[in-house]
Amino acid sequence: MTITKRLAPGTVVRVVVALVGVGCLLVAAQGAVWASQHGYAIMNDREHDLTVRRRQVDFETLWREFVAQVPPGSRIALAPDQPNKTLWHQRISEFAALNRCLVVLGPKGDYVVSVAFMDRQRPAGPGVRLVVRKVV
């Protein structure tokens, strides 16, 4: 003889709510799991994602060259024929703000600044250099 024990409807609902709810929270935590794995990999290998590493090296190289070549307080103009214009115009504008320079529209600046491209000597070496032309 078997004895079947009926679960109260309230208990069933509680179990369903708990299981589906925990499932939702687990799905929502997937991003944190990815971030943990990716962060751990980068911590152990700085060139884990070479594309991203190269971009950082390019930005830092350009920033150092900007500080070295453009005095604070200068008015700078952006070269209109810059390849990959949106990215590099925005980066040069950022460096200008960091160095207390003004970005002027049109040919009224003290310097015209642009970015030139070069072959990378190392896999994570710089692939760009800053071109600064003084306006006379």
Binding site: A35, S36, V52, R55, Q56, Q90, R91, L98
Partner: peptide
């Protein structure tokens, strides 16, 4: 702590540079 390790990723995000750090640049003077 584990997901915070992603802070070791190189600082390259477009909006971080073009918005937040650009603003930090002009606020810092």
């Amino acid at each position: 702590l584990p997901p915070f390790l992603l802070v070791f990723e190189p600082p390259y995000q477009w909006d971080s540079h073009s918005i937040w750090w650009l603003h930090a640049g002009y606020f810092s003077h």
